[in-house]
Structure formats: C-alpha cells, structure tokens
C-alpha cells in the first residue's frame, strides 16, 4: 500500500548542514528537501538534533557548515543557486522568483522576507496580550508599512485605518477557523493548553509564510485535540497552499498527515521516504525505538496501533 511519492518541486533545500557546539556535533552533514505544498515530518529519538535543524532553518542558530536555500519559484534552479552561493549575497532574483540563503540571514529577516514561520516546542505566546493582539503582532511588518512607519498611523490616516481593519478581519478569520472567536479578547495566557497550541499556529500563519515549521505541535494534546490538529495541518497544506515542516513524536499524527518523513539519529539522517516506507525501515525501527529485543516488539506493536 506504499503510495508512490509524487515528485514535487522542492521549496527548501538543506545541504550538508552541520552544527557543532564546541566538541558536540549536534547535526552532522544532513541534507534533505522540503517539497512545495507538502507536509514533511522530521522525526527521531530525543536528542537526535531535530530542533537544532529547526533553529538553523529559522535563523536562531548560524550553522557551522552547510547551505539552506529557499526558492519561491517552481524549482531551485541550479545555475542561479550556484551563482548566489558563490557570491556573498543572501538573496538573488531568478526570473520572476526569489532564492534566499537562509544561513546568511538574521532571524527576523527569514520570517519577514524568506517567509518561513515557526512555532516553539514550549509554547511562546504573548501571554499578557489578548488572542487578537497576538494575531495582530504577527502582521507587524505589513502593518508597519501601512502605518507609514508609525508617522501616518499617529495621525490616523485613512489608509492606515483600512489596513488595520483588514488585519483585524484576517485575525478574525483565523480565530473562527481555530474555534477561538469567543475568546478573542481574553489574554492568551488564560487559554487551555490545546487552544494555545492552535493560537500559536494561527499566529505563525498570519506572518503569511511559504513554509511553516512546527516544533512538536501535538505535544501535550489529548487524542481528540491531536485529531483536530491533523485536520488543521491538512487544511493549511491544501487550502492555504503552505508547505509544512514538522517535528513530531506523536506517531499517529506523523503517519496520518505526512507526505514525506525524514529520520534523524545522533545528528545524522538515517532514513527518509513515505511514512509507510519509513515505518518498515529496519534501521528506523532499531534507531527510533531502541534495539533491545524485548522492547522492540512492544514498540513495534505501538507503531502498528
């Protein structure tokens, strides 16, 4: 029942990514592609380097070695990318499209220009601000331009008012979509855990990303909330056309929604492919679930479930 993988053009190409912290090699020569319009899962045991890869992609770490390229065009064309890599620039315009080298960009520009958004393993909402305010902060850069970098906004120009209304409408749309419209004016810190997770995803989506990186979005959710999350992530892929890269431990979510799975262990990529392919890969079973014989059966049964 292995579904043939549709050859989708890559949005993000990670090549030979290495991240060292002193003597510790957290990520060692990892290369992979994130397909446009797909859901790619990054899995692996604890300490495999998944979050480090995330932090490199989103600019929180500067990788020791390697290239992280993102293209807004239909494909990462080799000549333009090579030209960019050879230069000292961060960005090149290839025809009608842009190619960015994320490892050269500061974190906020990766979100603002290359349009990569992320969420965090331990939720990072602005707890003292309302849900609506959280979603407006996400639209900061667009609103800054609309407010004439504050000058026009200070005097309440009509253009700014229209832009603000539009931003509020977008936020309202997302609040309705994640079922939090009734709590729009409540502080984000007052929401239950599962709602906070969804609000953080909505907030990341309102930065208008091409690639949404989710760090363990199902952590701490009950089965019902996990199922709702799967539906939300699929709708983000299908309805919004946003590619998703996620780290996840909840195998039911990974197997259900991923188009492509990448497995890391000790900072090295040990397998990748469709969920079914990865699930059967003996290396993955051994690495991800531990090699002790008595444990493997239990874990394998868990996987089947």
């Amino acid at each position: 029942m292995t579904a043939p993988e549709a050859p989708k053009p890559p949005l993000l190409a990670v090549d030979h990514l290495t991240m060292r912290f002193g003597g510790l090699v957290a990520v060692n020569d990892v290369s992979f592609r994130v397909a446009k319009g797909g859901i790619t899962a990054l899995i692996g045991p604890n300490g495999a380097g998944k979050t480090t890869v995330f932090n490199c992609i989103t600019g929180f770490y500067r990788p020791t070695e390697g290239r992280i390229a993102l293209s807004t065009g239909p494909d990462l064309s080799a000549p333009a990318l090579d030209r960019l890599t050879g230069s000292s620039n961060r960005h090149i315009r290839d025809g009608a499209h842009d190619i960015y080298l994320l490892e050269r960009m500061p974190g906020h520009e990766i979100t603002a220009n290359a349009r990569v958004a992320r969420t965090f393993q331990n939720i990072r909402l602005f707890t003292g601000m309302t849900c609506l305010e959280n979603l407006l902060v996400a639209q900061h850069n667009a609103l800054m331009r609309a407010s004439g970098y504050t000058i026009l906004g200070l005097f309440g120009s009509p253009g700014w008012r229209r832009a603000e209304d539009h931003a509020v409408e977008r936020a309202r749309g997302w609040l309705e979509r994640i079922g939090l419209i009734d709590r729009a004016d409540d502080p984000a810190g007052d929401l239950p855990y599962g709602d906070q997770r969804r609000l953080e995803i909505a907030r990341a989506m309102l930065t208008d990303p091409l690639l949404l990186c989710l760090d363990e979005p199902a952590a701490g959710l009950n089965p019902r909330e996990s199922a709702a999350l799967s539906i939300l992530l699929r709708s983000i892929r299908d309805r919004d056309g946003v590619s998703v890269l996620l780290i996840e431990h909840d195998m039911s979510v990974v197997m259900e929604i991923s188009d492509h799975v990448i497995v890391l262990e000790y900072g090295v990529k040990i397998s990748e492919g469709s969920p079914d392919w990865v699930r059967e890969d003996p290396k993955v079973v051994a690495a991800y679930l531990g090699v002790e014989d008595d444990e493997i059966d239990v874990a394998a049964r868990e996987l089947e479930a």
Partner: peptide, 13 residues
C-alpha cells in the same frame, strides 16, 4: 512579553 517569539514573527528587535 517574549523577545524570541517576537523575532520569530519577523520583528526586527
């Protein structure tokens, strides 16, 4: 509230 989250939203801190 949270400088890291603000940066992740594309705000130039």
């Amino acid at each position: 509230e949270d400088e890291i989250a603000a940066r992740a939203l594309g705000i130039d801190t």
